[in-house]
Every structure is written in C-alpha cells, then in structure tokens.
C-alpha cells in the first residue's frame, strides 16, 4: 500500500455509524457497500433508487450519506438537493457525491446541490477514507438560503469585482495588473527551494 495521506495509526470507529449508500448500478453499489463494510461499518444501508433512500432518510438518523451521481429513478444531484431541504436533522448529514464520467459542470452541480465532497470514480478506498477523515474535522458552517442549502461553499476570497472598490479597508481587487519585474528563470525558482548554509 502506498503512503497514506494521514497518520496510519489514527483510529476511526465507524462500527455504529449509520451510513446510507445510494447507487443505481447494482455492481457499483456493491463495491461501495463492500468498501464501507471493510472500513468497519456494521450495517451500511444500501438503496438503488432515490425513492428508497428518501424512505431511509425518514426512518433513521444518518451520520453519513454516500450518493452516486446515477440512481435508478433520478440522479444523485437531485437527491442531495432534496436531502438538504427535507426538513429533518438528516439534512445536515455529511454527504459525499460519487461521480463516474465527470465534467467540470458536474462538479459544480454537485457542489451547488449541497454535497460536502465530490469524489470521482474509480474511488480507491484510501481516497474515500481521506475524505472521511477530512469530514471528521470539517469546520464548515451550514448555509440555508432560497437558492442553496448545504455546507458553506465560500472557501476563498476573490475580492470585490473588477473595477469596483471594496467596502473594507483591506479589500484587494482580483485584478493584479501587469508584472513590474521580469519573470524568474526556472533555476532561480529552483534556488528558492534549495537549502543553503547561512553564516551566523
């Protein structure tokens, strides 16, 4: 196994976690269920359709939802959109959207539906576990608004729109203007990363 992107000995106890796994392709769903069983989840709840999953959402308190973009009766984006607005505490459950063939527009669609993360197939268990570990310390607040319900999407500040003055004294425009000095050559860039002896 290659190097893990987190501490190998970090413990994760998912045995009592209520995990909902939804996917329209029987084999793809089986692979996800086996993955979570291997992670230690005792009884992953598997559903092939959005309708089945909606029933489970109404019956159980979920700790994690893993949703394929392709379901038997609808798509994963619409299901997550519904989940975030369903009015039960499950609306705030961490939700991972798993996509197959993935275009940038599908990633934005998943984010805007309210997914906590979007993961592209094939999903190695190491990548899925990394996302779970990230979710354990996810500091994002939740947002509800007429146009969006889900984790706060604001992960970076782009400053005020180009040509407009910001309202805060430290607002910087996203337009950075032309360079005032020549570009660094590659060896100059490399030199910045090389340790050097420093005279004391």
């Amino acid at each position: 196994m290659s190097a893990l992107p987190f501490r190998r000995q970090e413990r994760v106890n998912l045995s009592t976690a209520e995990v909902l796994i939804v996917g329209g392709d029987a084999d793809g769903l089986e692979i996800l269920v086996q993955m979570f069983a291997g992670f230690g989840v005792h009884t992953p709840r598997r559903c092939a359709s959005g309708a089945e999953a909606m029933t489970v959402v109404g019956e159980r308190e979920l700790n994690l939802a893993v949703v394929d973009s392709q379901l038997a009766d609808t798509d994963g984006y619409d299901f997550i959109n519904w989940l975030r607005r369903c009015g039960s505490p499950n609306a705030w459950a961490p939700t991972i959207l798993v996509t197959g063939h993935t275009t940038p527009s599908q990633i934005f669609r998943g984010r805007d539906a309210g997914a906590s993360f979007v993961v592209r197939k094939p999903v190695p268990p190491m990548i899925m576990m990394q996302r779970i570990v990230w979710l354990l310390s996810d500091p994002r607040a939740f947002v509800t608004s007429p146009g969006y319900c889900g984790p706060d999407r604001r992960v970076r500040s782009l400053g005020p729109p180009v040509g407009m003055k910001g309202r805060r004294h430290d607002d910087l425009s996203v337009e950075i203007g032309a360079a005032k000095t020549p570009n660094l050559e590659q060896d100059e860039i490399d030199a910045l990363f090389q340790p050097k002896a420093v005279a004391r």
Binding site: M1, L4, F6, R7, R8, Q9, E10, R11, V12, N13, L14, S15, T16, A17, I31, Q34, M35, F36, A37, G38, F39, G40, N63, L64, A93, P94, P125, M126, M128, M129, I132, V133, L135, L136, S137
Partner: peptide, 24 residues
C-alpha cells in the same frame, strides 16, 4: 460523525483501508 468515529475501538485507518481493499 466525528463524535461516533472518535469513540474507543474501531480500526486504524491503515487497517480500514486494507479491509476495504480486501472486501472489494
């Protein structure tokens, strides 16, 4: 999820990943 996952017991992430690979 964090509260449940931090309860005593469970697996190390390395064991969990290996377990998942075997099940798949």
């Amino acid at each position: 999820l964090a509260r449940i996952a931090r309860e005593p017991g469970g697996k190390t992430v390395e064991e969990a990943v290996k377990g998942a690979e075997q099940r798949i």
